[in-house]
């Protein structure tokens, strides 16, 4: 095997031509496409990442909203419970006071009726006793004396 510099030169030239050709017409476009695909994948990954983040955030928000709603519901129930118990207390209280008032009124009425009855009885008794007295007196007192007595009574009444 002998070295021939012509072959070497031809080899170098053909390799350079091949390199130029491949670089320009094959690898250049191919690298471009691969780079484009890389960008595409990167972009899609970024999009996926951001959408995942957005979804996560939304999830978080949803959870917070749910928590809030739950809390509010609990508060409302609690409030209703306290209100209802307060109302019940109030109703009971009112009923109690009403009852006691009614009882007091009734007692007062009884008292006043009693007093009235006592007064009526007293005046009745007075009238009766007067009548009895006058019946008794009628027999003993004459016309003149009775007139005098009536006058005296009238006077007394006028003075009063």
């Amino acid at each position: 095997m002998s070295l021939s510099w012509e072959s070497t030169v031809i080899a170098i030239i053909s390799f350079l031509i091949l390199y130029w050709f491949l670089n320009k017409y094959a690898f250049g476009p191919l690298f471009g496409v691969m780079e484009k695909r890389r960008q595409l994948v990167l972009e899609q990954m970024n999009t996926a990442d951001s959408s995942r983040k957005a979804a996560e955030q939304q999830m978080e928000e949803q959870k917070a909203a749910l928590q809030q709603a739950r809390k509010e519901a609990y508060e409302i129930i609690e409030q209703a419970r306290t209100t209802s118990s307060k109302q019940a207390d109030e109703i009971v209280q009112t009923a109690k006071s009403e009852a006691s008032r009614l009882k007091d009124d009734a007692l007062k009425d009884i008292e006043s009726e009693k007093n009235k009855a006592i007064a009526a009885l007293r005046s009745e008794v007075g009238g009766i006793s007067v009548k009895i007295a006058s019946k008794i007196i009628e027999k003993q007192v004459d016309e003149k004396a009775q007139e005098q007595l009536v006058d005296q009574y009238l006077k007394e009444v006028g003075n009063k």
Partner: peptide, 27 residues
Amino acid sequence: STVIALFVSVVITMLVARLAVRNLSVT
């Protein structure tokens, strides 16, 4: 023979490369 061989392998390499990038597609 060297010239033929060089020519043939250069042409085949070019053909293979050109065939591969004929319908370039990203996706």
